[in-house]
Design a protein around this nucleic acid. Sequence first.
DNA 1: GGAATTATTGCTCATGTGAGCAGACACGGA
DNA 2: TCCGTGTCTGCTCACATGAGCAATAATTCC
Lengths: 318, 318
Amino acid sequence: MSNTDELLSIRAAELYYEENQTQDEIGVILRLTRWKVGRLLASAKANGFIRIEIVHPRARRLPIERRLRESTGLTDAIVVSSAGVSTDAELQSRTAQAAADYLTSLRPIPRTLGISWGRTLHDVSLHLKQGWAPGVNVVQINGGVSLNQRTGTAASTAVTIAHKADGSATLLPSPAIFERLETKQAMETDRTVAGVLALARNAQAFLFSAGQADANSALVDSGYLTVEQINELVARGAVGDVVGRYIDQHGCIVDPELNERTVGIQIDQLRRAPLTIAVISGRTKHTIARAVVRNGLCTVLVTDEDTANALLQEKDTP
Amino acid sequence: MSNTDELLSIRAAELYYEENQTQDEIGVILRLTRWKVGRLLASAKANGFIRIEIVHPRARRLPIERRLRESTGLTDAIVVSSAGVSTDAELQSRTAQAAADYLTSLRPIPRTLGISWGRTLHDVSLHLKQGWAPGVNVVQINGGVSLNQRTGTAASTAVTIAHKADGSATLLPSPAIFERLETKQAMETDRTVAGVLALARNAQAFLFSAGQADANSALVDSGYLTVEQINELVARGAVGDVVGRYIDQHGCIVDPELNERTVGIQIDQLRRAPLTIAVISGRTKHTIARAVVRNGLCTVLVTDEDTANALLQEKDTP
DNA sequence: GGAATTATTGCTCATGTGAGCAGACACGGA
DNA sequence: TCCGTGTCTGCTCACATGAGCAATAATTCC
């Protein structure tokens, strides 16, 4: 298109979108036929000069969702808009809200829902509405922060989700990681614990988040790992953790010995499950999100626009 | 509007604006009549959830221009969009381009055009296209940086504007500010200088910018004023300079003695002229822009979206 | 509880707009 | 010069959409 046509298309767009003029009226102003105006507006759109944004905390980006589904083979992708967001916390809150929405609209409603724990899932639990489902049995799928801690987030997350669904919560009464393998194995032979783990393995749906591999990890906060241990894991290729287990960019367990001492369902069990919902959001989680999606650790991804775009860029330039 | 309707309006907007679905189709998806969908979309717009931006260096903001005209009594206002701009320099370039466009489209074409000098006007001169007007006599209206300096911006600005209009430039061969009043008065009695000044006073149109009152002022750069002098002026209420003369927020000369030693047309002559085009852009120039507009120093303002909004805010909360 | 008022819904109709097409035009090669 | 090729323009027609208006539902007030 000629340079002067480009300018005209901008003038037309101003009158059309900002002044709500009809193409006819614009034609009179710019001394063009209304068809020419229509074509100019179309070209302005085609050239990407017209940007339409939906500015709302609940806004999603359907085109990005579609592209994500197509390029990754995800069953479903939920991408929240980051338009007008200033802080990462706000973005994560939006994502949690979207995850809550997704859970609520999920059909068929899962009878048992396996969940991990963390800030993100806690956020999701808070965004769910009372009565979001008619009775769901929520099962913890990995060891939690603690049973005795008053507002042990792990337990409270599960209980809240279950309570709001008028259902029940089955907690996994175990630390996330044992120091000694023997203790962990002994624990697993306990009938109660074994029962919970069996229930977890057979959950109809899984909901989990992922943590980036750095000093801010929830596992460090909770005291299960030291910053040194994390650095060691990173040095060995770890990009983050899923249900308490550290994986590299190929989705492989980074430290098998550590993995053995970790309580909860295995990565492979997650990989085989038919409905696994990952909620991952924030600038720092782009790499772990990529690892999760690329290696089929989830069938549904709930994330933010920026993370989604990062995933798509990966695909475009391999 | 109810909360659930608000959410629905967002869902509808996603399908309408991002997926290009028809309101009919959206109705089917959301189980609504197409009229309801139409209303939801209208409400989304009314609530400001839909943001349409024209992203182009030449894009203007017509609604803001109109509001500016209405609230300030300007004959004309040109406001360039700041969408997608990262640096102040880029914004100033856009503004200069818009000023060049405005000059080019000006009817009737002024036979004599009085101009000041500075980075901004130099920028304008560069953006003008060869043959932008059929012969214009460009006259300098205030003393310039120098005659002997190779690319003396002041002279080159005037010459460029005139040359591109196939016209002539009349330079004012004088410093901006004299140290002694007597020297300045002697200079003004010179027939050549007096002639130029008379021509300047009677110009059909004026084009000028304005400088903020701080150490970065062009008058400091050129050595006419020291940083200390500027600070003194600021202490006395100066917000910036117009054609080399420092004014306060009420448009009054801050230092009459200094003003007397300044060569060029008076502020009042500018105020009385029927067509005075001010080109002012950038974050640092909000206050001087306000002083210029509020005190009727220009009849036409060319500026950027942010500056314009700052002006409008002023008006809304007095 | 019933009447009055207001908000919401479904609809008709006029208008605005994009797809598709035929003719006009510009350009380049024989 | 002529003819083919591709682009652009003006137009018809079908569809999408907003304005306006009854009918209905919800709410408020007595």
